[in-house]
Design a protein around this nucleic acid. Structure first.
Lengths: 107, 107
DNA sequence: ATTTAACATCGTAATATTGCAATATATAAT
DNA sequence: ATTATATATTGCAATATTACGATGTTAAAT
């Protein structure tokens, strides 16, 4: 025991939870907001901006990447990437649908 | 180390992450969806519906309660509660604002 | 007053997350 | 080729989450 029992839930329920999990850390919220503030792709020092150690930032970026939210060049000296528009709108839609489908017919 | 460094982030960033954290489990998504399907307040067997043990469900309900999303009677034999409308709309708004404020000006 | 039913709490095991130092890798610059 | 710089990976410690059995609590029913 201790692990989430994903198999007893629907695909959508698991998907929603997975997206929420990525957003469930202030560092990842901050990273997304910071990328969004940039003009184009981000190539600057996210480590200084956020205030966590480099491996920690790298780890958080990986979580965001896992759900397909980042695209760009990931090799070489300068990492240049940005938010994947299509995926972002997809997830925004998913969240919005969830929030809208909860009907409040009580109290 | 191992604990989230909340103090280096803004109130909004922490708040968003906290809300997302509550949604970051399929059981809690399922619970919210199930309450929403009911006509009025929920007084039925959530344990059977979801398929997790009673203490586990109780724990998840507590997480949802912590961010003020449930209201109703919590004492006695029959637990009757529902989603707090004002709070729900507040959180929906918070999430929506976050998603809308991320601008996609790249690639 | 006892029993029963519904839910909460406690204790604990399994697993996941967070964070960072150390180290590896990969490219650009010299 | 060597050095410098940027990011990834590894390994590990601290903490948090998930799940449930056992037990406690509360109130209605008998």
């Amino acid at each position: 025991m201790g692990a989430t029992k994903s198999h007893i839930f629907t695909t959508t329920q698991n998907e929603l939870a997975q997206v929420a999990k990525v957003l469930a850390h202030p560092a990842r919220i901050a990273i997304l907001q910071h990328i969004s503030k940039q003009e184009g792709c981000i190539c600057t020092d996210l480590v200084e901006e956020i205030g966590l150690a480099q491996p920690t930032i790298s780890q958080h970026l990986n979580e965001i990447k896992k759900i397909g939210l980042l695209k760009g060049t990931f090799e070489g000296k300068n990492l240049c990437y940005c938010i994947d528009q299509d995926r972002w709108l997809e997830l925004k839609q998913l969240m919005n649908t969830f929030f809208s489908n909860i009907t409040l017919n009580c109290c």
